[in-house]
Design a protein around this nucleic acid. Structure first.
Lengths: 347, 347
DNA sequence: CTGTTAGCGCTTTCAG
DNA sequence: CTGAAAGCGCTAACAG
């Protein structure tokens, strides 16, 4: 049947404990013994039983990464960054830690379900990425779960979402508000006074922060916002397309459209073009995130670059290094990327 | 300390065995008893210990999905599709199965490492997505691993890569060869006779198949291929940019560039534009995969659409349904999407 | 540095 | 339909 640690021990003529020590490399073992054990492992083609060792040690090598949409490169890039950060050696069995990417699809229930599943697996850490849902009861439920997780020894990291109060979770945030503000300031500086805004789903922190930044810029410039200028949608291209058509219907005199993210902006560009409008001559467009494809849009997209690839490497050092973030550290700042899709308004 | 099944049993005044049966729902239990148990679970806020149950039952709910690059939507879309396919109820503990997305980064070693990790976790299933590496020793190593996995009861599914001989792995392939051929036939039909090809990394099945399709089309049209017309690179935008410059240097008379995938094609477009060439008037460009952003390129990309979102739903029914693929079923066919980036050659 | 000895928390026959 | 008991395979004190 399946080879167990005891079989290896027998073959190497040592005790099971010794084999375990060799495999985990966390305890001194004589070189000659180690070799003998390793040889036996190899000959028997032995593979450690993960559940058994997790049970005995009361921890596992799993690290859960929750994402809202795995098909969206925004999350893919973060997940990739996080994974390579934790991937290094250091896992219990001398091997790598297993990064578990879980796709919540933006659903609160699934988020909670995955958190429970991860709790059940006694995950070593869980990382929640992207904007959080702002519904009060859900926030409470998540906080409670996170508290249980940290109590059980699971490290919790929030990446791109605000800190969870009453929780020992480390938070690495992005400055969505500041980025949104910069973007709109740039457009205003160009002379725009009538700007449409395609926001993401409501009740999402990212959505709210970006929108707040936009409004702060408007206000600072003394521009009175027209309620017709804001439309909510999803974070995808299709949504950007529809929302832009809606915006145009509501107020054809808009000279700029600011989108919740780059995908939405691409959809907006398409809608504008179909409507016979030139970018940026007739309408300027701006995105957010600076995903790789944004530079290839024509004209290339003016957007805000977020340090997505630095996710998992907090300002206070890697959250995996055991050091938690020092209060006072700044958010991951956004960098305004001015490109071809924004220009001076028509007339 | 942490609540165990025994605590629940005590509170519900039943034996641990009964609690287990209620939780797993795979054994008759009196309704009144069940309720009592569920109530206790709720009151105690009990969470099943995954490792312990995996150890005792010798299986787990984990499903591993191996991807070459999680930041690439090509894989993200497939992973998402697979996850939603397996996500439904049916996991051991009545809950969802935990989909584990593992990022190999295209490295053979990491692929093997993850396979071992998954084997160690006694995964319920593993899905390998995307092109396989063709190095003989690696292929042998992977096959051996897969055989061990299936022997241990893990279901193995190959998605977008050729079947593994001597393995009971289910394979769902994409018709890369046919797609490549269609694309080039389209270009030839337009009048192109001098076509550059930016291939993916060597020793990858996807790369080889797409290239073979391209060459088959060339040959069928009686076009003698010039060795200078093919360049190998990576599956990303940057690579497409560099390769295009190289292609232009080698033979400025090229009238079309066929790229390994859409990202590469975008890079190619950028390089062409920087070189003062218009698309498609001076040079036509074609991609592969039809990722969401491709339609938003300007001009929009002529490409081949692959049924990525159907990954995990094989032609013979879902591979998760227990039914394996019937021999003779056809590959996931590619659909030629003719768009603005391809046109008749100059002159 | 190595062996012995208990469990970790759950599932699963086997009885009742 | 329910309980008792025997592990699943490994780790972690504790001695030597």
């Amino acid at each position: 049947m399946t080879v167990t640690l005891a079989d290896v021990a027998a073959r190497a003529q040592v005790s099971p404990a010794t084999v375990s020590r060799v495999l985990n490399g966390n305890y001194p073992v004589a070189a000659s013994t180690r070799e003998r054990v390793l040889k036996a492992v190899d000959e028997l083609d032995y593979v450690l039983n993960g559940p058994a060792s997790a049970l005995a040690a009361a921890t596992s090598d799993l690290v859960g990464i929750l994402v809202n949409d795995i098909a969206d490169p925004f999350f893919g890039i973060m997940a990739s960054a996080i994974q390579s950060e934790i991937g290094g050696p250091g896992g219990r069995a001398g091997g790598e830690r297993l990064a578990v990417v879980c796709n919540t699809g933006g659903s609160p229930e699934r988020e909670l379900t995955y958190l429970t599943l991860l709790q059940r697996q006694r995950a070593a850490a869980v990382v929640l990425t992207g904007g959080a849902i702002e519904d009060a009861s859900h926030v409470a439920a998540v906080s409670a779960k996170l508290r249980k997780l940290t109590d059980a020894g699971t490290r919790v990291v929030l990446c791109g979402r605000p800190p969870a109060p009453d929780t020992s979770a480390v938070a690495l945030t992005f400055d969505n508000r500041g980025g949104g503000r910069q973007l709109t300031e740039h457009l205003i500086g160009l002379g725009h006074r009538r700007l449409g805004y395609i926001a993401g789903p409501e009740e999402r922190t990212t959505t709210r922060h970006r929108l707040e930044g936009h409004r702060a810029a408007l206000e600072a410039a003394g521009i009175q916002e027209d309620p017709r200028w804001t439309v909510h949608g999803r974070y995808d291209r299709r949504s950007g397309h529809e929302a832009t058509l809606e915006l145009l219907r509501r107020d054809p005199s808009l000279t700029a459209v600011v989108a919740a993210n780059d995908s939405v902006a691409l959809g907006a560009c398409a809608a504008l073009r179909e409507s016979g409008l030139r970018i940026p001559e007739d309408v300027s467009v701006a995105g957010f995130d600076d995903l790789p494809f944004s530079i290839d849009a024509v004209p290339s997209l003016t957007t805000v670059r977020l340090p997505l690839a630095q996710a998992g490497r907090g300002p206070g050092g890697s959250p995996w290094g055991g050091r938690s973030r020092r209060p006072g550290d700044r958010d991951g700042a956004g960098e305004l990327m001015v490109r071809g899709s924004s220009g001076v308004p028509r007339e």
